[in-house]
Amino acid sequence: MSRKIKKITYLGLYTAVAILLGYIESLLPVITAVPGMKIGLANLAIVLVLYQFGPLAAFMVQIVRILAVGFLFGNLFGIAFSLAGGMSSLIVMTLIKHQTVFGITGVSVAGGVTHNIGQILIASALVKNNQIMYYLPALIVTGVTTGLLIGLLCMEIRKRLYKYD
């Protein structure tokens, strides 16, 4: 199989996995005091694509995932929040990926925190109320925790994928 076909196939699979994980997450009940707080399961696919294919491929998968999940299982506000969080997170992950201090877990943590900051900023702008910033400390803790979990999962998945690739 040619490299180009193989890459397109992998990106299609990663996109499908990201959409599926987004759907699964939409089914999970919100059990926190902070509205909209989620695990970020779909970011698993995004971080894997970022490391395997680079930022442009990760950007494409991210956009398709956000639009598909938003239109299928959400609404326009959800799309706006996801775009703000997803794009800011992807930019930061891309910028720090090449730093030797950060491994895949550190990049994932930075992405999780930045995702939440991007969402809180867009929420503040949409509702025209800065009081929403009081959620920021809880969202940062959640971003670190979920980013760590996603990063550790990414490390394990990468180890296993390289055996077969």
Rank of each mutant, 00 (worst) to 15 (best):
Y134W: 15
A84D: 01
N129S: 11
G85N: 04
M93S: 04
Q131N: 15
V101M: 14
N116F: 08
V92Y: 05
L136F: 14
Y135I: 13
A84P: 02
G111S: 05
N129Q: 09
L121V: 15
L90Q: 03
I132T: 13
N116D: 10
Y135G: 10
I117H: 09
G111R: 01
Q131T: 11
H115M: 10
I132Y: 15
Y134V: 15
S124V: 14
K97D: 00
T100K: 13
Q119Y: 08
I122K: 10
S89C: 08
S108Q: 08
V107S: 00
I117Y: 09
L83G: 02
V92Q: 07
Q119R: 09
M93G: 01
G103S: 12
T105L: 14
G118D: 04
V113T: 03
S88R: 07
A110Q: 00
N129I: 02
V127G: 09
L83T: 03
H115N: 12
H98N: 14
N116P: 10
I104W: 02
I91R: 01
V127W: 12
L83H: 03
V113H: 01
Y134H: 14
L136K: 15
G111W: 00
K128F: 12
G118I: 05
S82C: 06
S88T: 15
I120L: 12
T100R: 12
G112H: 04
S108C: 10
F102I: 00
M93W: 01
L121Q: 11
A138H: 11
G112A: 10
Y134T: 15
T100H: 13
S82L: 05
A110G: 03
P137M: 12
S88K: 07
S108V: 06
T94C: 05
G112K: 02
V109A: 04
T105D: 13
N116W: 06
Q119H: 10
L126M: 14
G85T: 08
V113K: 01
T100I: 08
S89F: 01
Y135P: 11
H115F: 10
N129Y: 07
F102E: 01
G103C: 07
I122W: 07
H98Y: 11
L95P: 05
V109E: 00
T94V: 08
G111N: 03
V101I: 09
I104F: 05
P137N: 12
K128T: 12
A123C: 13
A110T: 00
G118T: 08
L83K: 04
M93F: 04
L136D: 11
T105G: 12
V92D: 05
S108Y: 05
V113F: 05
T114C: 06
L83F: 10
H115I: 08
S88C: 11
S82F: 04
G106Y: 00
L95N: 05
